[in-house]
Amino acid sequence: MRTIDDQVAGVDARTVVLVEGVSDRVALETLAARRGRDLDAEGVRIVSMGGATNVGHFLDVFGPPGRGLRLAGLYDAAEERWFRRGLERVGLGANLSRDELAALGFHVCVADLEDELIRAVGVAGVREVIAAEGDLRAFRIFGRQPAQQDRPVEAQLRRFLGTQSGRKSAYARALVRALGPDKAPRSLDAVLAQV
């Protein structure tokens, strides 16, 4: 397994977008490609940090204390405190509000990436994607589990996307590809608009 230092050593960029996990990186890269953007050619690197609690170290390396690169990010609402603390610690503000975080280029997913994508694609659209990926039978079996039966379908879908290693990333790509024109989640749109 690569250490954080290994992850940052090879990053050559003018702008770094910090994201919690691989599925966030995949979603942003897929959306950028759909829009005809070549982030590598633009000097933009999306760095998966392996969790929000690592943001401080990445800000130390890429932000004002380190390389002084332009920064942006995407985070889940429940993890906002880690981003706020990290940005404050490297001198990019104090007692930052969500709007101030956004002005710095750091945008929130209301619950998480999967929730954003499910709302943007819609339940019927997500079911179509699941069928196209060959997972409809598995989703139906999952939905019959006692713990899932009384939950709203959106909650079932969100949980299903995280039940198997690699599934979040695969579905991040597939769901972004399934987005209708101008239907991208606001948080993903906002990050790409700032880099």
Rank of each mutant, 00 (worst) to 15 (best):
Q156V: 12
D40Q: 13
A72L: 09
L31D: 01
E114G: 02
M49S: 00
F142G: 03
R158K: 10
R159K: 03
V121S: 02
D76E: 14
E29A: 11
A132R: 14
A77C: 14
R89E: 12
S48M: 08
L101S: 00
I118F: 08
Q148A: 05
A78P: 08
C109A: 15
A138T: 02
I141S: 09
L39A: 07
V61R: 04
Q148H: 07
E88D: 06
L28N: 00
G122Q: 02
V121R: 01
E79M: 12
A27Q: 03
F160W: 08
L28S: 00
L161M: 14
E100P: 06
T163I: 12
R35T: 11
D115C: 12
S97C: 10
L136P: 06
G66L: 09
R37K: 14
A72C: 11
R81A: 15
N54W: 08
G68N: 09
A77W: 08
R144D: 15
A147Q: 10
E29Y: 05
E128P: 04
R151A: 11
T30S: 12
F139P: 11
G93D: 13
F62P: 01
G162S: 13
F83C: 04
D112C: 07
G68D: 08
V126W: 02
R151N: 11
A138D: 03
D135P: 09
E133K: 13
